[in-house]
Design a protein around this nucleic acid. Sequence first.
DNA 1: AGATAAGGTAAGGGTAATCCAAAAGT
DNA 2: TACTTTTGGATTACCCTTACCTTATC
Length: 374
Amino acid sequence: MSLPPTEQSGNAKHAHLLAHKWLNPNKLAELVRTEGLVYKKGKFSAIEEQQLKGAIEKYQHEKQISSEQLIDLIFTKSDKTKDATFWSELTLAVPLRPIIAVYHHVRRSYHPMQPLGEWQPEEDKKLIQAIADLGQQWEKISVRVSRRAADCRDRYRNHIVNKDIRITGVWSKEEEQQLTQIVTDMTVNQGKDIDNDVFWGKVSELMGGKRGRQQCRIKWTDALSKTVKNEGQKPRWSQQDAYILVHKVDSLNVRDDTEIDWKLISDPDWNLWSAHTLQRRWLTLKKSVKGYEDMTHQDIMEILRLKKAHLPTVAPPATKKRKERKVTSAAAVTEFDSRDSNAATPEAGSSTGVGTFNETLSQEKAADEDGLDT
DNA sequence: AGATAAGGTAAGGGTAATCCAAAAGT
DNA sequence: TACTTTTGGATTACCCTTACCTTATC
């Protein structure tokens, strides 16, 4: 009998799996269940980009290959000189990433056609013609339109489809109701999760094609879903929210804010804010720090920690004429926290990995209690 | 020769930078 | 009230994952 696998040996084994097996989502999910495999999803952080770049340069140097040969290696299929270990080596440079993710990421970022920005009317014409001629064969279309296959596809589904009936601008009450109806029919009325099981292409169709999939999704996740959850009231961002956000980000102890998984930041008791909204709020917060462009994440954090050292008092009641204060989500959280710290039930909090936050807030709150409105 | 793994392409799901209007602050 | 600053709504180029194949490898 050997020793039970230590964390290290487990990780080494997992790292090897991730770097050498082209695991499809089912197999990945199974390994997560059976072996406690941990892997990373979502946007590649700046740090990971660096690590990949380093690995690619190292490979290029060791094998003494030119940049052209490198591009061949990444894009040309069935090249006899192909090195089967190439993708595995790159993957080892970014721990926790499956080889398929690295493969796709590198092929995107080293693509010879770089993104070109806004589409010109002539390009749209070319695209429409190409689709008419070829069908949805994006790689072939790409050659004719001189845009990446993925960009052609995106242009098509987001802007060309239904472009004559598509409308933009502020949503009417009727549209909002219709969207809410469609989303709830599709999810809760089918026993599905209203936050995760929505097919936005389908939703757009059901909206009669008047609104695109992006319009529908953003409208729902950033606006409608939270007013639905908040009994029709629209929350407004407050200084308390800013305080909470700074402390949550701080508690993650990331090296860089590109490492943050914003979905983990939203809290069951603070979840009126979508991940997207929180990310946006973080950016404005960060930009409020003078000279942030040249600072490390740690420097920025330090300043923000100082700036937001104290929990701001609730809603400055300077005047009472304010038509019944909108309930802010921050208020909801602080209320919850005071219950939480009294009860001290471990399961009460969220298990999102930002647990230290609640303690911080409770302490701050205790110290600040007198300043709080009653 | 047939099974399985690697790899290519398309479909599906999402993020983040930006513009501008509305609300809050002064 | 008029003006300035902050926040929120909408838009859209761009990014990541999954599904479904074809091709390579054993």
